[in-house]
Each structure stands twice: as C-alpha cells, then as structure tokens.
Amino acid sequence: MEPGYYVVLAAVLFTIGAVGVLIRRNAIVLFMCIELMLNAGNLALVTFSRINGTLDGQIMAFFVMVVAAAEVVIGLAIIMSIFRTRRSASVDDANLLKY
C-alpha cells in the first residue's frame, strides 16, 4: 500500500474537521471536529514517520494525544459550565459579547 494515500486521507480528514468547525453550531460537535483535525495531524505524522524512516513522528503523535487529552479536560469544563446555566451548548446562543 502506498503511504502517500495516507497523507491524502489525513488531508481529507483534516478538511472534514475544519469544515465541521465552520458550519456546525453545537459546541460539543465543534469540539469533536477539532479532535478530528488533531487526529488527522497524528495520521500525517505517523505516515511521514514511515516515509522518512525515522521514529520521531510516532513519538510526536503521542505528544499530540496527551495534549489533546488535556485540552478535552479544559474544553469540556468550560462547555459544561456554560451549559449548566443556559441549558444549551449552541455557540449561537453565546452572544453577549459583540461589537
């Protein structure tokens, strides 16, 4: 199997995630799309690690996973605290700050 295809797959996943962030409204779904983008980055790192013949990329993927986990903790805490008050996780409802 050509490793180049995995780079293309990673780019496609990243694009799906980025488009999702731009068009979806629910903060949780937005957040899942961001996770998809991070995982696309991981796939690209591992693929390039295979192509380059160095292990660095695979180690970097671990770093990205750990950081993503920390990000989930912070992100869900913030989304939860808003949801408890507003009973909604829609980012369109968070509209107190403008202009």
Binding site: V7, A18, I34, N42, A44, L45, F48, M60, V64
Partner: peptide, 15 residues
C-alpha cells in the same frame, strides 16, 4: 482550532 492547524503544519514540515 488554531492549534489543530499548527499540528497539521508541523506534520507537513516533518514530512
């Protein structure tokens, strides 16, 4: 969102 871009850019530069 911005750091996801940073990661993917990092992966491409690693490639």
């Amino acid at each position: 969102f911005a750091s996801a871009f940073f990661i993917f850019g990092m992966a491409l530069l690693y490639g």
